[in-house]
Structures are given as C-alpha cells and as structure tokens.
Design a protein around this nucleic acid. Structure first.
Lengths: 200, 200
DNA sequence: GTCTATAATTAGATAGAC
DNA sequence: GTCTATCTAATTATAGAC
C-alpha cells in the first residue's frame, strides 16, 4: 500500500507499519538471517539508526511479523465454523481459512513458515504454530473416526501432506484479486478430498 | 554413517565427506546463513582453520551439497520410466522417484528446497531446480491432455500443489527403514490421485 | 590434518547533533 | 524522524607452526 507517510501528508519519514512491511518483504526475499540491518536501511533509503528509532532490535521486527501471522491463524480456530458441525466440515473450514489467511497475510505467514527456532522469539513462534498444527491434526483424526476420511493412509501422513499443500502456497501465490484466494482454497479442498483423477 | 575416519583407522581427523555431512545437518538445523563457521567448527570439535583445509569456503560446502541433491533429482528424469509410456505413468514415476530421492538424500535435498538465491551458487542451483520443476510441469500438462488428470483445476495450481506435498516431506520425514520411502511415495500418489474421501 | 593467532570485514546496536 | 560517527562483537578467511 503506502510505504511513506508522505504519501498522504507532506511530512517525510516512515511510520512503524511501513518499515515493518518492507522489512518483512526483505526477510522473505533473502531470508531473515541473510538480511542485515544495513541492507534493510539501504532498501528503505534510510540510515540504520533511523530504523532503531522505530524498533528496539532486528528481532523485534521479526517478533511483530510472526505475531501477526499467528494471531490470524489462531483466529480461524476460534470461528464458529471451526467449532461446530461434522468433523469433516470443520476440517474443511479450517483448511479454507488457513488458505485465506495465507493469502491475506502472505508476507508474515511466509516468514512464519520459514522460522527455524534460532532464538527465543523463534521458538515461541514455533510453539504457537505447533499448537495450531495439533488442532488440525485432531480434526483429521475426528474426521477419520466419523468415516469422512479414508483410513488406509497413516493419519499423520495425511495431516502433513495437507499442510504441505496449504503451506507451499506461500512459495508461489501472488495476490491478484479478492476472489482469487477463495478459488485457491476451493482448489486445495478439491484436490485433497477428491484427488486429481478425472470425474467418472 | 561414520563421522570420523578414526572409526575405521587409528588416525584422528575428518575426511571431506564426514565434514560435509555434519555441515549440511547444521545448515538444515539453523539455516545456512545462521550457521557460522565457528559454530560448525564447535560442532565438529575442530578449529575453523581445519575446515578450511578441506574446503575453500563456506559456500563450497553449500555448493557440493546442492549439486548432490540436484544430480539425484535430475537422474530421475533420465530414467526409462520417466521417458516412455503414458504421461500419467511417467508423472507417477517421477513423483515416486522424487519422493525416494528426497528420502535417500534428505539432508542435501532439504537444503536445496530452502535456497533463496542470495549468491551465484544459490542462483545456479535455483536455475537447475526450476528446470526440474518445468519438466514435471510439462508432464502434468501432457497427462491432462490425454485425459488422465482432471481439467477443472488450473494446471499450474495442480503442479504446485503436487510439489507442495512432495517437497513438504523434507520438513518432517525421518528415515527409518528402506521400505519406508516406497510406502510414503505410494501414500503421496494415493492422496494426490484419489483424494482423501473414503473408497466408495 | 589440525592448531593458535590474526587479518579484514561486517554485523547489530548506540550516542548525540539537527 | 533522521543523520553521521562510532562501539563492540562476530564473521569469513588466511598465515604459519607442529
């Protein structure tokens, strides 16, 4: 959107949000560790010191972005569609929601999916992410128990292949329209549930 | 396997292969950029200088690992099963082969899948990886043209979801047996082709 | 094949002026 | 809100001894 406050006012200078957006974009392009504050400053056409006026540390940039992604994902699990109904419907709802969060918060979710656990901030994010994964995992087990999912494939493998499909979207999806993400979510569910063989 | 030459001979010291294996494991655990030569040396219980006796640079470690992964993947495309027969069978053969390469060369393929293109070595690896991806992409188009794959989902999306499933295996698969990878490849093809709904 | 010591550079972060 | 200048620590890599 607007990178500079000056876009809406005559004043020069960035605000926190604008810097964070550009930082996350850089982190995703080069990797968090490979993105130096110097390189980030150059990208902002700003001095390093100016960034430290807005953020206490490089890691704070990471922390804010990861929290944004996690809060959005966790929000899906709290919605009604994730809490009531047949397990297969709740599972479908959560997968659809995850795809839409991925599309809506693509930069921060992409960053989240690449976290390795090198610091406390990263480990805390991984813990929250795993909690989300476990909830989906439980839904897969429930849906299988109610007979809505095939049981001739290991449930853990099923869960992980589902996450593989959904999470990989971060690697190639580029937002183009509003309806786009919903279509993509439909495609994921179609492939996951019905497979790629032609309709008989 | 054997980390130290001393395992089979009285001499102390590492050989190139042993160092490379441990280096790639560290790169995968912390990320390439986040793994310093100092940390690697500590992990090897060796001085940094000793590593430089075996390798010219940190990047050479990366280059050798990426080449190993790419050579193995490219090998699948050169096998007979990938060259002759119905497109759907060639596609299945390549996907199965990719899963098995992933399992057999898990560390180097994992590293490959995380490359961002920050150096010439990384960009060259990405170029080779994209060539592989394009071959698989062409197989998807062929299989769809012959009527073996559904055509109500965008072909690019199909290809990417397939890669998403296969590549995500690097994030969680841990080798346990020889038959394990073949079973996993079967599961991937089952889910991808027939979907998760129960058999009717 | 490995070591200690060190060079040269870059990293994240701060001080203080404007 | 941004700057220049700077600090300290860490980084990749090399020199030369054993």
């Amino acid at each position: 959107m607007s990178d500079l406050i000056s876009a809406k006012r005559g004043r020069p200078g960035y605000d926190q949000r604008a810097i964070l957006d550009i930082a996350v974009a850089a982190f995703n392009e080069y990797g968090y560790d490979a993105t130096s504050m110097g390189a980030l400053a150059a990208r902002l056409d700003l001095s390093k010191a100016a960034i430290y006026h807005h953020f206490a540390s490089k890691e704070e940039l990471l922390e804010l972005a990861l929290d944004e992604a996690l809060t959005a994902l966790e929000g899906v699990l709290a919605e009604e569609g994730a809490l009531a109904g047949a397990a297969i419907d709740r599972l479908a709802y959560v997968l659809r929601g995850a795809v839409q969060v991925l599309a809506a918060k693509l930069p921060s979710v992409t960053l989240l999916l690449r976290v390795r656990g090198n610091s406390q901030v990263e480990r805390d994010a991984l813990t929250r992410r795993r909690a989300f994964d476990h909830m989906v995992s439980a839904l897969v087990l429930e849906a299988r128990a109610e007979g809505s999912l095939r049981s001739d494939v290991d449930a853990r493998v099923v869960t992980r292949l589902l996450f593989g499909m959904v999470n990989s979207i971060a690697e190639w999806y580029r937002p183009e329209g509003l309806e786009d993400a919903a279509q993509l979510a439909d495609d994921v569910l179609t492939v996951a549930l019905d497979g790629l063989r032609p309709r008989s």
